[in-house]
Amino acid sequence: MTSLKVFVIARLLLVIPTILLLVSLVFFIMRVMPGDPVIAIVGMKAPPERILELRKALGLVDESGNPIPLPIQYFNYLANLFRGDFGRSLIWGKRPVLVEIMEHLPATIELAMAGFLVSIILGVTLGTIGGWKGGKMSSAVKIYSAITYALFIPWIGMMLQLLFAVWLKVLPVGGRIDPGLEPPMITGLYLLDSILTGRWDSFVSALRHIILPSLTLGLVISGVFSRVARTSVEEIMRQDFVIAARARGIPEHRLVVHILRNAFIPIMTMMGLQLALLMTGAILTETTFSWPGMGTSLFERIEYRDYTTVQGTVVFFAIIISVINLVVDILYAYIDPRIRY
C-alpha cells in the first residue's frame, strides 16, 4: 500500500472523533445554557400539557413524563444522529430538521462557492502580484488585505446594494432569482441547473442575483488570501531553490508557476482555515441580501426559539466543516509529497 493511501485512511479515521467532539460540544452547550428552553419557547403561562409535549420533543422526558438522565439523553442524541435523524422542528408541525436543512443547503452552498471563488481569484491574484513585484506593489496589497479583512459584511453589502441596485439600478437588491424563473431541480444550485437544462433566462437571472452577495463575501475573505499569497510568494522567492532555478536560466513565466505551486500549500491551508469564516460570512451575507439559505433560515428559527432545528443546523454545519477540512488535508498530502512521511 502506498504511503498516500495509508495517510488517507488514517485521516478518515481521525475525522470520526473530531465530529464526535463537535457534536458533543453542541449537545452540552445547549444543555448548560441558562434558563429553561421550554419556558423560553412557550412562555410562563403555557398549559402543562403543552410544556410536557415540548419536553418530550426535546428528549428531556420519556413517554410517561419521567425525566431522562443526562447520559441517556446524550446517548439517544448520538444514536439518532448516527441514523441521520437530526430531530424534528418544535414549531413547524414536527417537520424533520434534515428536510429543512436540505431545502436551504443548496442556496448556501451556491453562495459560499461563488464567494469563495471570488475571494480566491481576487486574493491570490493580488497577493501574487504584490509578492512578485515587491516594493510599492507589495505595500499596496498589504493595505488591501488590511482593509478588506476589517470590512463588516452587512455594511459592505449595503454599500454595494446602494451603488449597484439603488443608484445604478443594474443589479437586484436581494433574493436568489426572479420569481417564476427557478430552474428544474437537479442539484439545487440554480446556476448549474439552469445550464444543465439549457434555461438561459434562469441562468442570467440567477447570475445577476448572485453577483452582489458573492462579491460581498468574496471581498471580505480575499483579504486573508491576498495576505497569505503575498507573504508566501515573497518568502518562497527568497529561497535557495528559486535562486538556483534563476541560476539555471529558468524564465520568469515558468518560475511563477513553480513559486505558486510552493505557495499553494500555505494558501490552501488558509483556505481550509477560512471555511469557518466562509460559513459565518455566508450567514451574514444571506441575511443582508435575503438569500434563502441556511443562514437566513437559522436566524428565523433562532427568533422562533425552534431549538431542535437550531441544534440540528449547527451540528450539520460542524459536520460539513470537518468534512471539508478532511478533503483539504487529503489534497494537501497529495500535492506535497513530504506530508506523507
Binding site: 535557495d240 531553490f241 538556483a244 541560476a247 513553480h258 506535497d336
Partner: peptide, 21 residues
C-alpha cells in the same frame, strides 16, 4: 547563458532543489 554556459552549485543541495518536483 545561465545554466547553459555557466553552471552553478550551491552549498545546501536540499534547499537548492524544488521540494515539490
Amino acid at each position: 547563458i545561465r545554466g547553459k554556459h555557466i553552471g552553478m552549485i550551491f552549498q545546501d543541495p536540499l534547499t537548492s532543489l524544488d521540494p515539490l518536483r
